[in-house]
Amino acid sequence: MMPKDHSLESRARIEKDSQGKSHRVICDPDLLELADILNTPVHQMYLKSMEKGILPLRYFRNMPSITLKQQIILQRSQVAVVGAGGLGGHVIEGLCRLGIGALHIFDPDSFDETNLNRQVFTDQNTLGNAKVEVMQECCRLINPAVQITAHRIAVKDPNQDALFVDVQVIVDGLDTPGDRLILAAIARKCRLPLVHGAVAGFAGRVMIIQPSDNSMEMLYSGKESACSSEHLLGTPVLSPALIASFQTMAVLNILLGKNQAGESRMIYVDLETPSLDLFEL
């Protein structure tokens, strides 16, 4: 009896897209089985598959907006999300589904009932549990190719820069001015782009802050101890869901080297009006 073929090629099949173009694809169960048989980390198995021109079927509907070559870039990338609440949770889910290779999640808190109105990973079963640990488990089920590192800590010291040495982008999912200024200082120290997002009521803003940029200080300097607008106006689910989508797109553009001309702009969205405005800083 011939030994069973455990190659990626043997498990691949042809799938046609809406334009009739053929692509070699492979299903999650086959990738997971091969990773186990060949004693290869799951994330590496997905990367090897794509490097051989075989697209995991889970990413089939990303094409052609995200090409196979770009999907490989994402699989090799690492992103840190600081703050795993309304903004951070939506960003984490989006990046997980997109296929970012590794996510580092930072948040010291546990889910409570006030989170149920907007935070995607909270429900009756997760109340009282650590946010980062719940997200780590949920993301493993959503996409096993993404490595999730859960840090149940607050980022409140500029000397915590060593935690970010392996990432290419930091996402701001925080809600207080003082913490945001510290995170901006860390990003500057690490020479990393910071994707800032903030929400209040039915409005919010997004901005990419480069290491040489002092936009965060322009927005928050002198307000370190002030109550955030989010706490004053509340946060219905609509605003964090939308602003997090803009943040996720910003991360995607940074990692893929796209749309760099818009980095000095702040997007301000008001859902009630509705309106979208761009501000040059």
Rank of each mutant, 00 (worst) to 15 (best):
M2N: 15
M2F: 15
D5C: 11
S7N: 00
S7T: 10
A12R: 12
A12E: 06
A12H: 02
R13I: 03
I14T: 14
I14D: 14
D17V: 01
G20C: 10
S22K: 12
V25A: 10
C27H: 15
D30R: 05
E33T: 08
E33S: 12
E33N: 11
L34M: 09
I37R: 13
L38I: 00
L38V: 07
T40H: 03
V42D: 10
H43G: 07
L47S: 09
K48D: 09
K48L: 12
K48M: 13
S49F: 14
G53L: 11
P64N: 05
L68M: 02
A80V: 05
G83N: 07
A84S: 04
G89F: 09
H90I: 01
E93G: 13
E93R: 15
G94R: 00
G99P: 04
I100M: 08
A102I: 11
L103C: 07
D107T: 06
D112T: 13
R118I: 02
Q119V: 09
Q124P: 13
T126L: 05
T126C: 09
V134M: 11
E137R: 15
I142K: 03
P144F: 04
Q147G: 11
I148H: 09
I148P: 06
I148W: 07
H151T: 07
H151D: 02
A154K: 01
Q160I: 05
Q168A: 08
V169D: 08
D172M: 10
G173T: 03
G173V: 04
P177F: 02
P177Y: 10
G178W: 11
I182V: 13
L183P: 01
A198P: 12
V199I: 04
G204M: 06
V206N: 12
I208F: 10
Q210H: 14
L219G: 11
Y220T: 06
S221D: 11
S221F: 11
G222D: 01
G222H: 05
S225P: 12
S225A: 14
C227K: 04
V237S: 15
V237F: 00
S239V: 07
A241D: 06
F246E: 04
A250W: 06
L252D: 04
N253I: 07
G257V: 03
A261G: 07
A261Q: 09
G262V: 15
V269Y: 08
D270H: 03
L276Y: 13
L278H: 03
L281Q: 14
